[in-house]
Design a protein around this nucleic acid. Structure first.
Length: 570
DNA sequence: GCCGTTTTCGGCCCGACTGTTTTCAGTCG
């Protein structure tokens, strides 16, 4: 089992313990351990072999370490198996429905025999819930609404749906209402790969007027709640947007609080307490609560706690607070560091734009270079190019390059790694491209050993510079294929092969935790959009923020290099 | 179940809202 699978299992245990009614601190301990392990830069199996062992992991003590050791050694954990006999397998799913927590899940199970989401739906329809102690008609309605929501958005929203929608609303409110400051908050501001709902925070002295304007926003189909501190609306595309209204003097502390993550906030408040202070959404206070130390400005809160400012993308309680205390936060890569894009397709294969259109948009973004990396001959479904067609493309690129002084189209290819680990062209052909990328497009269902072998075999070819979308996952549609990333990272370091961070919003592959792990191995990255239309080149920002979430600096990413250094490094 | 520049035992973040209740439990973020 890998780190993310272990983390998922620990979270599941946390959910089960909560329903059983275990101490919330024990529940929290399992969730913290899960959070830390998901971000671990090393394979947990290796740590198991260390002298200090699993307890060297912050948040893993003797109890969890013993259980994990058994799991890693035998593939089973007695404790988990025992819990599963106490609760039906799908009962934990209930607490992911808005309005249902552990207590109600337990009540429904014990009193109504509800064991799954389907059971609950039936019980609600038959109005068996309202007669339970502490329940009523309104509770029943609330849960029914939560259930509808749960069914509708089983998957969370992609960043690429949420970010533009939020930006439009912010522009609108700035234009038509009296806000002094306004920002996104929540997981959207942290640029998590998927978003639950859109949170927006505004500072104003005229909350009623801002609330009115917000509810009049043209895309609103229904107003769910409207008050002076909070409004919720539903947009016609099904998105829920929450607007929170604050006084300017509290904007910083409110923004800090509503940005989260939950675990980051808990850790920060613990730290405040240790220093004799108290932190809430209303500000940072002395313990007596009568002296305000910070509130209007978010950065002041961190500074008053003795920390460097922590960017929202890092606020996951994955070591950023310790790093900020030690002055060791990374100098995160910025969008302006990106000098070009190394993965783009044209009409020649499965793209929709011409060479000229791609180049024009890349220049508009201020790039020095763009690599045209169409698919090659064996990927028939994408109309891959044979050598003759590539030679024609090279001729066109050379001709176009003559007219620009400070911009270059690079000749590239995205090879397909077949089930034997072989690619489309012999080495003497590969040597003729500026950049050679390779990736897996077929045989997703092969076993871990096989897929890892294919990838590592391709990396061993000295002509192959980059491995694209290394896990093949597509958010909400396709899980990653079975691949041993630890072996891949080690091989990437050894062979000097670059790993791609694919910026396409439903890929983001490698993801944040994987980037951080790979960085520890000394791997270098390319952040590429994999554009199939010139407009897709603008997706770079989704990759960029994912890179930040992976603690990457500009030195970790090769397409921050000017063109001559780039070509030399390849 | 974890952890220690107040502690190896006794703590463990903070506040608001809702719905069901007469003082609070449950849920949420």
């Amino acid at each position: 089992m890998d780190n993310s699978e272990i983390a998922a299992l620990l979270n599941n245990i946390g959910d089960m313990l909560e329903i059983i009614g275990e101490s919330s601190f024990r529940v929290g301990a399992y969730r913290r351990a899960a959070n830390v392990i998901s971000a671990l830069p090393r394979d947990i199996n290796d740590i198991r072999g260390d002298k200090q062992g699993l307890t060297s992991i912050q948040g893993v003590g003797k109890g969890i370490a013993e259980k994990l050791a058994q799991l890693l050694d035998t593939g089973k954990m007695d404790y988990y198996e025992e819990l599963k006999t106490k609760l039906p397998g799908s009962l934990v799913e209930l607490i992911h429905i808005q309005g249902v927590g552990p207590k109600k899940a337990k009540l429904f199970y014990e009193e109504l025999g509800v064991e799954s989401v389907d059971d609950l739906e039936k019980a609600l329809q038959e109005h068996r819930v309202k007669d339970l102690p502490g329940m009523g008609v309104k509770t029943e309605d609330n849960i029914l609404r939560g259930l509808e929501l749960y069914k509708k958005q089983s998957g969370r929203l992609l960043l690429s749906q949420a970010v533009p929608a939020a930006e439009k609303i912010i522009n609108y409110l700035q234009k038509y209402s009296d806000v002094t400051e306004i920002s996104t908050a929540g997981s959207l501001r942290r640029w998590r790969e998927t978003i639950g709902d859109i949170d927006i925070l505004a500072a104003t002295n005229k909350p009623r007027q801002v609330a009115d304007e917000f509810c009049n926003y043209p895309d609103v189909v229904s107003v769910l709640a409207k008050g002076e501190t909070k409004c919720s609306v539903l947009l016609h595309n099904g998105l829920q947007v929450d607007l929170r209204l604050m006084k300017p003097a509290q904007f910083g502390s409110a923004l800090q609080y509503f940005t989260g993550s939950k675990l980051h906030n808990i850790h920060l408040r613990e730290l405040a307490k240790k220093r004799g202070l108290k932190l809430s959404e209303y500000g940072l206070f002395n313990l007596a609560g009568n002296k305000l130390l910070a509130g209007a400005d978010e950065a002041d809160i961190y500074n008053e706690l003795g920390l460097d400012y922590i960017e929202p993308v890092l606020r996951e309680d994955k070591g950023e607070i310790e790093a900020a205390a030690a002055g060791k936060l990374p100098d995160l890569i910025k969008l302006s560091d990106i000098k070009g894009d190394l993965h783009a397709h044209t009409q020649a294969s499965d793209g929709q734009s011409s060479l000229e259109e791609m180049a024009a948009f890349a220049q508009k973004l201020g790039y020095q270079y763009l690599a045209i990396s169409d698919h090659a001959q064996t990927l028939k479904v994408a109309h891959g190019l044979d050598l003759k067609r590539f030679e024609e493309q090279w001729r066109q690129i050379a001709e176009l390059n003559r007219q620009w002084e400070d911009f270059t189209l690079l000749t590239a290819v995205e090879l397909n790694i077949n089930s034997e680990g072989k690619t489309d062209f012999p080495d003497e052909v590969l040597a003729r491209f500026d950049i050679v990328a390779a990736s897996i497009h077929t045989g997703f269902t092969q076993d871990k050993e096989r897929i890892t072998y294919r990838t590592i075999t391709a990396m061993a070819n000295p002509h192959i510079d980059i491995i694209c979308h290394p896990t093949g996952r597509i958010l909400d549609r396709r899980p990653p294929y079975a691949i041993d990333l630890v072996q891949v990272f080690a091989a990437a370091k050894k062979t000097g092969t670059i790993l791609e961070l694919n910026a396409f919003p439903d890929r983001l592959d490698l993801n944040d935790d994987q980037l951080r792990a790979a960085k520890r191995y000394g791997v270098k990255f390319a952040i590429n959009t994999d554009a199939h239309h010139f407009g897709h080149l603008a997706n770079m920002r989704y990759g960029l923020h994912t890179a930040q979430r992976g603690w990457l600096t500009s030195a970790d990413v090769i397409n921050t290099l000017p063109i001559d250094s780039l070509l030399k490094s390849l």
